[in-house]
Amino acid sequence: MNKLMKMAMASSLAALMLVGCSTQSNLENKAPEQGAANNASDKVTIGLSISTQNNPFFVTLKDGAEKAAKDAGAELIVVDAQDDTAKQISGVEDLIQKKVDVILINPTDSAAIATAVEAANKANIPVITVDRAAEGGQVVSHIASDNVKGGKMAGDYILETLGGKGNLVELEGIAGTSAARDRGKGFHEAVDGKDGVKVVATQPADFDRAKGMTVMENILQGNQDIQAVFAHNDEMALGALQAIEAAGKQIMVVGFDATDDAVKAVNEGKMAATVAQKPAAIGETAVQTALKVKKGEKVESFIPVDLELVTKK
């Protein structure tokens, strides 16, 4: 039994190593000849490795990129990773074989994608990451939603609706995450230091609906006079909404992410607003940045894309 297990493990390990070797050597053998063929044409070719086409967010992102490429007369080659890291790495390797001018990567996994980024670096093809960043390799630019601006939009909207004054509550995401930090930062930029505006409680609820409810219940015990709640995501906002309804209060709730549940709550008038990302704009910006890189222009290492506020239709 034991021996059999060991043999099985050893042979599968060996098989894995063989697979690893073969892809590596293929890549190095083929690269030069293919490159010569492609250099002849002037048309800019951009490769886009998308994490999945199974999520409307990324489909819209891809559509935005395709439109931008068409407008600029560039060719866009899209490879779909189907949320599989291994598939994404081989997809990027395929793009390297095709000698595209720039590779746009929307990683399925920030850590695992480093291998693919390094492979592109080795072939001297510039890489731009989209929506999720890469944790290794050389990346020319990263394009994603501007969470700081989103937080500011939420804060501004709350102040505008309340007529510039009121007591506010902030429900924070998991401490230390970039989303929590950036969304909170933007919110405070909008509301801090304004006359008549006071953030009476800033408490963590870890992006979780149940915690959003509990924390809001506790805050309501201590503060009767609250006009608005800003939650770093919709889950916490919907949890807070349950606490507010149970307490029989009328408090304005603004969330973040525009999930289906939240958009529904906004349209029913239960939530005031939620901040939505604009995937099409992210795709467009990615292609435009790729074209700039190809022309040799200098681009920022992080290019934030605006968000939009979803309110009742």
Binding site: E172, A175, V200, A201, T202, Q203, P204, T214, V215, N218, I219, Q221, G222
Partner: peptide, 13 residues
């Protein structure tokens, strides 16, 4: 403890 920390508005950190 959870309730008290919320009531006292203790920082998440």
């Amino acid at each position: 403890l959870d309730n008290g920390l919320n009531l006292l508005n203790v920082s998440s950190f």
